[in-house]
Design a protein around this nucleic acid. Structure first.
Length: 584
DNA sequence: GCCGTTTTCGGCCCGACTGTTTTCAGTCG
């Protein structure tokens, strides 16, 4: 997906180019960094920067002050920034074409453009093939090869993978490393540990005194096709799938500092370092040192656990899911960190499909499996039969038939697991529920969602979601954004209106745990929670193993700062039935 | 250029690894 000219990615890139131009022009390095920090901030923002601009709230973003927001104002109004163009004039424009390739930062990009006259990535590729790059001072044959590889490898490997996929890759490698003697701990790091919905590179931390053995074994794993680097403290490889995996190795004494450092996020760590500096401390992945007059003093004190690391800064331990520098450090300082909901708190779920629609198992088997996984209740919610194709009478008969099946199962599983009889019902393009109220009323609860006409206007989509929330026979709004990670963007809609309607009508929004959905997304969960919206975490299981995704839905809730009180399905069956207004 | 429960001036995160180097610059996370 190419970023549109006004997307956060595009605006961030613009600022990075200005930073790069400043850097090669020898501008004050803190000014240069300020542009990079602003770019980081925009890249990590949960709102569209263009929307913030429209609302006059650009300065809400950390790192965006008077000057940059004035420049961006000009950019959004006219599509150009006079000052930026002036800045870039002093350097060959070709540098921006190759700047950002793996291993090509501002200085190298500048040199390639200036010395070789490259204006495009293709130019650079040709020059490298001819051996011209190796002749440049500061470059050599090896750099030339790396540039060729970077260009060749650009396609296909820049995509992020879904969280559960990253998890399973990491688990496999973790098992291999744990087998080695002397390995004390192995943990996921980075976005994986923070449970971000998509993961780029996979980072793994290892605690051992024998780092050489670990690096040796790691770089020789059967799936490894390329070793990007290997030293005493870390190693990077590329797997057959094109996925990059990094390990970081420390002894147990300083393992807490490693965990903290490489879990990130970068923004969280930068903020934390400022907090440390103010206290006369300097942080690194090895521990905590004294800090005076802008420099660290002496050798860092190794820190063995993360808890200790945060405590030494006068803070409580902060759960990895919150470490995005979106207020968690301030909350920790004032003792107001949320008590996040845990996986074990979830008692049941209500979005499950069976052979009656597009599921792959019988109703009884899906109930049995839910029971074996410890769920206290399960709601069966197949797609409702269509009145359009089958006619009213036949649809009604089908619904009643399914209902009798549930009643039978309810007797069979009495005392073991509660079963609710529901359906997932579409709201059509005309903002009407696909079943008339008379049929909706036959279900004990229904789930409203959008499965068609995703590309309508913001106004129409909002209207459809409002119909779901206002209809008295619909109990919950499912996968509210409609996004499919890596496949389909979320549709446009007015969240403020939707959240307010959810609160007004006392209806929860779903946090759908399906890996490519993870919908409502964490950023919106947090906004909705602020307004007072409640949530139900569901798996949308279509077969047994989908039930396992529940933990990822819980992670979304945690990243959205949810406590138990924000989640309805932490209640027991009867309590939950009341909260959802189940019709019995 | 940004930012502020010790500051509206004077600070601004930190270290590993790599390649091309005889001591370091550039890039990355």
């Amino acid at each position: 997906m190419e970023p549109t000219r006004l997307s956060n990615a595009a605006v961030a890139r613009l600022l990075r180019e200005v930073a790069a131009a400043y850097e090669v022009r020898g501008e004050n390095r803190f000014k240069t960094r300020a542009y990079d920090i602003a770019a980081d901030s925009i890249e990590h923002a949960t709102s569209e920067v263009k929307d913030l601009w429209e609302e006059g709230r650009l300065n809400d973003l950390p790192g965006i002050g008077k000057s940059i927001s004035a420049h961006l104002d000009q950019y959004f109004r006219t599509g150009k920034v006079k000052h930026f163009e002036e800045v870039k004039k002093g350097v060959p424009l070709g540098m921006f074409a190759v700047f950002g390739l793996e291993g090509v930062g501002p200085k190298k990009a500048f040199q390639l453009a200036k010395e070789l006259g490259v204006e495009t990535v293709d130019d650079l590729y040709t020059a490298a093939r001819k051996g011209k790059v190796a002749e440049l001072p500061g470059f050599g044959r090896r750099s030339q090869e790396l540039i060729l590889k970077a260009i060749e490898g650009r396609k296909g490997t820049d995509g992020r993978i879904l969280l559960p996929v990253a998890f399973s890759i990491a688990e496999k490698i973790t098992e291999e490393i744990l087998r080695l003697p002397g390995v004390k701990r192995v943990d996921p790091l980075g976005s994986l540990r923070r449970m971000v919905s998509t993961v780029g590179d996979i980072d793994i931390g290892v605690a051992t005194e024998r780092s050489k053995d670990v690096v040796e074994v790691f770089t020789k794993l059967p799936d490894v096709t390329r070793i990007l680097g290997a030293g005493g403290a870390k190693a990077s490889v590329v797997l057959k799938t094109g996925r990059q995996v990094d390990i970081r190795v420390h002894d147990l004494q300083s393992y807490g500092a490693l965990l903290q450092y490489f879990t990130g996020s970068k923004q969280h760590n930068i903020h934390l370092r400022k907090v440390a500096n103010d206290k006369g401390l300097s942080l690194s992945e090895y521990g905590i040192a004294k800090y005076e007059k802008g420099h660290k003093v002496g050798v860092p004190l190794p820190v063995a656990t993360e808890e200790e690391f945060y405590h030494l800064l006068g803070l409580p331990w902060i759960p990895p899911e919150l470490r995005e520098d979106t207020g968690e450090i301030e909350a920790a300082q004032s003792g107001k960190l949320p008590h996040l909901v845990n996986f074990e708190d979830i008692q049941g779920e209500i979005h499950v499909h069976t052979l009656h629609s597009d599921g792959e198992e019988t109703t009884e088997d899906m109930v049995e499996e839910a029971l074996s996984l410890g769920r206290r209740y399960v709601g069966i919610s197949d797609h409702a039969p269509s009145v359009e194709t089958r006619g009213f009478a036949q649809a009604k008969a089908e619904i009643l038939k399914r209902k009798r099946e549930i009643e039978k199962l309810r007797k069979k599983f009495a005392g073991k697991i509660e079963i609710f009889f529901g359906a997932e019902v579409n709201v059509n393009a005309q903002a009407k529920m696909a079943l008339p109220n008379e049929l909706l009323a036959l279900y004990e609860y229904t789930i409203g969602s959008i499965h068609t006409s995703f590309d309508q206007s913001e106004e129409l989509i909002t209207k459809r979601l409002l119909e779901i929330l206002e209809n008295p026979y619909v109990n919950i709004l499912a996968h509210p954004t409609g996004r499919l990670l890596g496949e389909r963007e979320a549709y446009e809609l007015n969240w403020q209106k939707v959240f307010e309607a959810a609160v007004k009508h006392g209806k929860p929004l779903e946090i759908n745990s399906y890996p490519s959905r993870l919908d409502l997304p964490d950023g919106l969960v947090r906004e909705a929670k602020r307004i007072g919206v409640k949530f139900v975490i569901n798996t949308d299981a279509h077969r047994f193993e989908h039930y396992q995704n529940l933990r990822f839905g819980v992670s979304v809730a945690r990243r959205g700062w949810c406590e138990k009180s924000d989640i309805l399905n932490v209640a027991d069956a009867s309590g939950f039935a009341k909260l959802l207004n189940v019709r019995r």
